[in-house]
Design a protein around this nucleic acid. Sequence first.
DNA 1: GAATTCATGTAACTTGTTACATGATTTA
DNA 2: TAAATCATGTAACAAGTTACATGAATTC
Lengths: 183, 183
Amino acid sequence: MSLQNAILGLLTYGPITGYQLKSVFDEFINHFWSAQLSQIYRDLGTLERKGCVSYHIEVQEGRPNKKIYSITEKGRKAFQEWLEHYPRTLFTAARDEICVRIFFGSRLSTEEVKEQLQKYKREVQEQLAAYQVMEGALKQMPCNRPEDEFFWRLTLKKGILLGEACIQWTEECIKEMEQREEI
Amino acid sequence: MSLQNAILGLLTYGPITGYQLKSVFDEFINHFWSAQLSQIYRDLGTLERKGCVSYHIEVQEGRPNKKIYSITEKGRKAFQEWLEHYPRTLFTAARDEICVRIFFGSRLSTEEVKEQLQKYKREVQEQLAAYQVMEGALKQMPCNRPEDEFFWRLTLKKGILLGEACIQWTEECIKEMEQREEI
DNA sequence: GAATTCATGTAACTTGTTACATGATTTA
DNA sequence: TAAATCATGTAACAAGTTACATGAATTC
């Protein structure tokens, strides 16, 4: 449901193609929601069948024609309705494969577990670095308005805090494993 | 893929029914992976077709017969193979609906955004309280061995650190929103 | 000359959710 | 007497992933 709502939300900034939506997702949304192009096209189709979006075709030479999507009045209402109503439960812990691995950590050697934690830590650090880039890129976001940018920064902030917590966790895991080995 | 691997991993502790698996998931795995009963039954079926698990039937009076699943040699190998090989990329930021909501925060009044953040914060606090209960319940986990419990605690630790980061985030969001209003 | 970008999608598959169906036993 | 527990599932749907297909223009 949230991908369709995110698409509707982005359409409130102005008309856009599916292809462009994908790059907005990759650049600015990726830290809390990702989307494949195929899924975006499918959901745009679904939204169109529901009457939440419409499109017009921009004819191009030498490339496929563009389908430029706009949000309809119905779409605006549906989005606003969704946004105003916080669901009964929203916070459900994410599916987290590294935890599945660590849960069964006794099936691996201490060294193997530590290596996996190190790999994980490196991935998180790379993400944090990517967030730095993102922070700088926010200004380039199409249709940037300061009242929006304020909230975009808050979502980035969450990515950073969570990433830092992940790194702290890997460090504590390794420390505890080393203390355990000494005994 | 990870649900099937988690099921295989739990089966390495000993034979178990689908129904019992569900309660193990709810009690001990929920903070990093959740599963519906229907999905567990389906995946047990898939694993059986793959030859990774087998079952025998325990006839019961007045209740449906139990299907007691055991891991096969093939299943053990598949699980170990999966566990030993950390994938190219594992850390992909979770889909996080609260961020979708905050991203579009300028579409709501400050009060509405704050309320949603407060609701979210309360949910996280409830989760943290549930983790306390879980921590105490670890000892009751069937087939508890200290070398396993050590790693189970590490996964709980992650839930706690992430939860705390979420709470810190909500507080910072609210603080920043209030600072912004003053201007 | 090879890879990337632009631009559309479809198809098949996997994973996750929700609703339905049955029915005895136990607990509140 | 109502709700929860035990115990099995199926069916339909929603959401997410991967692979395939096309093809010009641009950049390395």
